[in-house]
Nucleic acid binder design. Structure first.
Ligand SMILES: Nc1ccn([C@H]2C[C@H](O)[C@@H](COP(=O)(O)OP(=O)(O)OP(=O)(O)O)O2)c(=O)n1
Ligand SMILES: [Mg+2]
Ligand SMILES: [Mg+2]
Length: 762
DNA sequence: ATCCTCCCCTAC
DNA sequence: TAAGGTAGGGGAGGAT
């Protein structure tokens, strides 16, 4: 029970066995950029109708793709079969792909119609990869409109906060303008004149003057401070307003029906209607009785027949997969924690401020606590006979299978079994290994007990994962080692699972101390022992140094912290970059300047699946993408966030790569990702789908080897990530306010209580 | 210099 | 059979 100063951490050969784990399979990464440049769609020149089955399929698949694209991109191809797409009879806008920026005359819808009719394309979202021309009217028009709105707005609300929001909307235009990326910005008249001349005219004389197009930056001040607008060269150009702003996050909600900035402010149905994040309830790992599950067919018999283990057979794969994924569980745990303990996390001022100058003089006391073989410990409570047997948690007990061990107890670890090993390899090196199934609800419950105890003993708790946290006990009166001891005892009494703890002067050393205290132990590293402790420590034991960095260091004859200690900071920075070099130099000296952060701002929301992804046709692939968008949209809404940048990632079997070692795995892949930034943050599922579809289209995933950049049959993983996040609160209010303004349209959306609520706040 | 995009790396 | 997710840090290299 006592802190045995085991030397396991140092002598453990885990670092060296891990190389075999990644042999030949997917974990290898390619540094290569995408070999292709899918700048323009490669069109096969379809000749005679379907000479054979193959060309029939090619044609069919192209139609499918075109149909799919129609949402995000509209092109004459998508317009349907009425138009013969063959030979020379391409419309006058063939090869032209426009993006309409802001208010135009003719309207963007009219322009869209012209493009469709005459062989061009119309993009709903700007991307330098897909757009060839930006269409933009004179700014004053749109500006006037916006300003007029602003005045009405003033009359109605007399709210300075809202002015700020309005201004940010106006500046959205500037930002958008700055997106031109060297593409021609052309007046809409060009389109009309081309039509009149019945040919593609040189657009040079139609260049739109970008009068106010210098990038402007709207500075969002810290709470309660002045609000400024900085001009191009950094000088404060205008002091716009000086006001108390509790928080100003941004702009109105994206309108899924239109990207025009003078949008009709209708509430997007999906995001506005359901305030409760149903997704969170559905996904709850706490639901002892699965009430809400009845909402989705998957649990009940209806959909069950279709359920499978891949996208080939399960139309509801996204949802079903996540239900069983351990990595999804631990990956999403932090958000559930945020919700569950939000009362303890809010109002805590960011310790980022170095205001604790008085504290810095005092030497910090950090405790790191981590549950021992968490997933196993929780399950094994029900099997007391197994405590001295080798046990692991895994989906499968198949001795020839490729299911992964999630956690192994310390008996099993002595045989070399650890998280991530295939069950067949685990069985090979430990034939008597007992496999137990997962119980995510139980993990959730124990984690809650764990954190309740931590928060009881200390107010500065930083959650690292469901079984691991840092505590800053610098200002506590009690002896840190005694606190750790008490906490560990209470954890064991409450949960019947053991935890280990490390105590030291900074996060790094506390973390390392826990490692050498495990299992069921604790260790204090006094500052005078630090050098001794680090001297022979393998570099791989340092947090932030994984397999790749380890290999890189090894090739430079650096394997221990002691050896790294000898390398100059400059040399490390040259080889690993400024920040990482700095980190290496610090860590091998036991220096760590990080502080315990109770609240951590979320910077991205995303979902991806890289298992069970197999498609035989584009339809299924599109279907999957649509569901992934739903998932991400629900997650955004579930945590009250909206984002401006949407990134789509596609994993594709690497050229020459064999079938994955792992059943239904992604194997050795290259991945491509591409993002689109829109001017208005969104959480709306329709908007996400449109944007994701547009990006997907730009990858040119097709069913046809010769003409596609990615064969849909080789897609092994898809991910969707949202960044440039803003809170949805404010934007929702502003949006409602706008609806009030423009009450002529969508008046039925004006839920009285909604408006009342929003005005109340102001 | 600073920002942005597209990656890779890391940890649980 | 089996459930290889999630989010942050940061580097390279290009645009501005
Ligand atoms: N590759 C991984 C790593 C972790 N986990 C899950 C199972 C672990 O039980 C839990 C906590 O991770 P830890 O790194 O803390 O590992 P353990 O708690 O299992 O063991 P230890 O005693 O080393 O902390 O996260 C996982 O499923 N797959
Ligand atoms: Mg643990
Ligand atoms: Mg842990």
């Amino acid at each position: 029970m006592n802190s045995r100063s085991s030397s396991r951490a140092a002598s453990n050969a885990a670092a060296f066995t891990s190389s075999s784990a990644s042999s030949g399979d997917s974990r290898k990464r390619s540094r290569n950029p995408p070999t292709t440049n899918p700048q323009r769609p490669l069109r096969s020149k379809a000749k005679s109708p379907f000479a054979d089955f193959r060309s029939y399929m090619v044609e069919k698949n192209r139609k499918l793709r075109a149909q799919f694209q129609a949402d995000a991109t509209t092109s004459s191809l998508g317009a349907g079969s009425s138009r013969a797409d063959s030979g020379d009879d391409k419309g006058i806008f063939h090869g032209v792909s426009i993006f309409v920026d802001g208010f135009t005359i003719p309207s963007s819808q009219e322009l869209r119609g012209y493009m469709l009719k005459h062989g061009g394309r119309f993009e709903n979202y700007f991307s330098k990869h897909t757009v060839t021309h930006i269409i933009c009217s004179n700014l004053p028009d749109s500006k006037m409109r916006n300003l007029r709105c602003e005045q009405v707005f003033l009359v109605n609300f007399a709210s300075s906060v809202l002015i700020c929001s309005l201004l940010s909307i106006v500046f959205g235009l500037f930002w958008l303008r700055a997106f031109s990326h060297g593409l021609p910005v052309v007046r809409p008249q060009w389109v009309l004149d081309c039509l009149a001349a019945n040919r593609l005219l040189n657009f040079c004389s139609y260049f739109q003057l970008i009068m106010w197009g210098m990038p402007m930056k709207l500075v969002l001040p810290p709470e309660g401070q002045c609000f400024r607008c900085d001009g191009p060269s950094g000088q404060a150009s205008e002091e716009l307003e000086c006001m108390k702003v509790e928080k100003l996050f941004g702009e109105i909600n994206a309108n899924p029906e239109s990207t025009d900035l003078e949008v009709k402010f209708s509430v997007p149905p999906a995001s506005g209607a359901i305030p409760t994040p149903l997704s969170m309830i559905n996904k709850s790992y706490m639901g002892h009785q699965k009430i809400h599950e009845s909402l989705d067919s998957s649990v009940n018999c209806i959909g069950a027949s279709n359920q499978g283990h891949s996208t080939l057979t399960d139309p509801n794969f996204v949802e079903n997969y996540f239900k069983s994924s351990r990595l999804h569980f631990i990956g999403t745990w932090r958000n559930r924690y945020r919700k569950r303990f939000s009362n303890l996390l809010t109002g805590y001022k960011s310790s980022n401020e170095k205001t604790n100058c008085c504290v810095t003089k005092q030497k910090a006391s950090i405790i790191h606590v981590d549950m021992d073989c968490f997933f196993v410990s929780v399950i094994i409570r029900n099997f007391p006979d197994l405590v001295d047997k080798p046990v692991a948690v895994c989906h499968s007990n198949n001795p020839r299978g490729t299911a992964e061990i999630s956690s192994a107890n310390y008996v099993a670890r002595n045989y070399g079994v650890k998280a991530g090993t295939f069950v067949r390899d685990a069985k090979a090196c430990c034939p008597h290994l007992v496999i137990l199934p997962y119980d995510f609800e139980a993990y959730e419950e124990v984690a809650e007990q764990f954190y309740s105890i931590l928060h009881k003993h200390c107010s500065k708790v930083q959650a690292l994962s469901c079984d691991e946290a840092f505590l800053d006990v610098t200002v506590c009166d009690d002896d840190p080692e005694e606190i750790a001891s008490m906490i560990r005892k209470e954890i064991e009494d409450t949960t019947r699972c053991t935890a280990s703890a490390g105590i030291a002067g900074n996060l790094l050393l506390a973390y390392l101390a826990t490692r050498s205290a495990k299992p069921n132990g604790q260790r204090f590293i006094p500052s005078e022992k630090v050098e001794d402790y680090l001297k022979d420590l393998p570099v791989m034991a340092l947090p932030g140094i994984g397999y790749a960095t380890y290999e890189k260091l090894k090739s430079r004859q650096i394997q221990t912290c002691g050896q790294m200690y000898m390398i100059s900071k400059e040399a490390l920075q040259k080889d690993f970059g400024i920040r990482i070099g700095d980190m290496l130099w610090n860590y091998c000296r036991g220096i760590d300047n990080r502080t315990v952060e109770v609240v951590q701002e979320r910077k991205s929301v995303g979902a991806e699946v890289n298992w069970g992804i197999r498609f035989n046709n584009l339809t299924d692939c599109h279907h999957f993408l649509v569901n992934l968008c739903k998932e991400v949209s629900l997650r955004l809404q579930g945590c009250g966030l909206q984002g401006r940048a949407i990134t789509l990632k596609v994993k594709k079997r690497k050229k020459g790569a064999a079938e994955p070692l792992k059943f239904m795995g992604c194997g050795d892949c290259e991945s491509v990702s591409r993002s689109i930034t829109v001017p208005v943050a969104t959480d709306n599922v329709v908007a996400l789908q449109r944007i994701a579809k547009q990006i997907f289209a730009s990858f040119h995933v097709e069913c046809d080897y010769e003409y596609s950049h990615i064969d849909v049959k080789e897609v092994r993983g898809i991910g969707l990530h949202i960044t440039k996040l803003e809170s949805s609160d404010i934007s929702r209010k502003v949006q409602l306010a706008f609806m009030c303004l423009t009450s002529d349209q969508d008046g039925d959306c004006l839920k009285p209580e909604g408006v009342a609520k929003s005005t109340l706040k102001f």
